[in-house]
Simulated assay, not measured.
Amino acid sequence: MLEALLLLAVGMLASICGAVAGLGGGFIIVPVLAFLYTIPVASISGTSMAVLFVSAISSTIAYARQRRIDYRSGLAFSVAMIPGSVLGALTTTVVGSRTFFVALGIFLMIMAVMINFKPTSSRGGWLRPNTHHRLIDQSGQVHEYSFNMWFGCVVALFVGFLSSLFGIGGGSVMVPTMILFLAFPPHIATATSMFSILLSSFVGTISHVSLGHVMWDKFIWLAIGALVGGQIGARIASKIPAKAVVRVLAVCLFVVAVRMLFKG
């Protein structure tokens, strides 16, 4: 019973943090499972991915009510993520490159710092905007931004692979990319990221389930916590200013980076 309560709390905390920052929460679940149990990396990634899917459902429902999801961009990004999600699930049993983990950790630390800087309005080359979107959220606030859709989709493909491979949620790369390089408003970026994660994590979860990577006895309690946490996290995100969302994201990215640097 104590183990069930612990997993329930972990699922809730991970989902709250994941929803606020748009990361999904796997950056908490993966290290906790690795610390508590002696199990294969594939089982950790698979279970975390399945919980991520549940968390994304809960968060997306809440963000949809707030009208902060850019559905057109989210659908495009999620379609690009799907091939990467399948490849990531197939790769979990063979990956073990220390260099790769270190490189990813350093990259995320750099992003944690850069995310605090305002996106430049003079983007050119492969960052030159080719799409303009305008959203009005539930509070009546107008969000207008222009970005390069092709660049976003290329990043999403890579994100889908990382998400399924590590079970950490591709938002750790996608959200800072959306804010820093695609000039998405922070609130729209986190909400749209969770929507994209919902669609891509479904494919990743199915892939992991078919490969027998999900530990169902642990998944149940983590998922119950994630369902509750996703609603709470989305509500917290709606109450805090955009700058605070960025600060939370930076801290979460740093945590993920440290996890990657000391993995294995």
Rank of each mutant, 00 (worst) to 15 (best):
A4M: 09
L5Y: 06
A19I: 07
V20M: 10
A21G: 02
G26T: 00
I29Y: 02
V30W: 09
V32Q: 01
V41E: 14
G46L: 08
G46Q: 10
T47I: 09
V51C: 07
I57R: 00
S58V: 12
S58T: 12
I61E: 01
A62W: 02
R67G: 05
R67F: 09
R68E: 12
R68Y: 01
D70K: 06
G74Y: 15
A80Y: 07
G88W: 09
A89Q: 02
L90H: 14
L90Q: 14
T93N: 11
V94Q: 09
S97C: 05
F100G: 14
A112F: 09
P119N: 05
G125D: 03
H133V: 14
G140N: 00
G140H: 00
Q141P: 00
V142M: 06
H143C: 05
M149T: 11
V159H: 07
S164E: 05
S172A: 12
P176H: 03
T177L: 04
L180H: 09
L182S: 12
L182K: 04
L182H: 07
T190C: 03
M194L: 14
S196A: 14
S196K: 01
G204C: 02
T205L: 04
H208C: 03
L211A: 14
M215L: 15
M215A: 13
D217C: 02
L222E: 06
G225I: 05
V228T: 13
G230Q: 05
Q231H: 11
I236G: 01
S238Q: 08
A244L: 11
A250G: 10
V256E: 04
A257G: 02
F262H: 06
F262I: 14
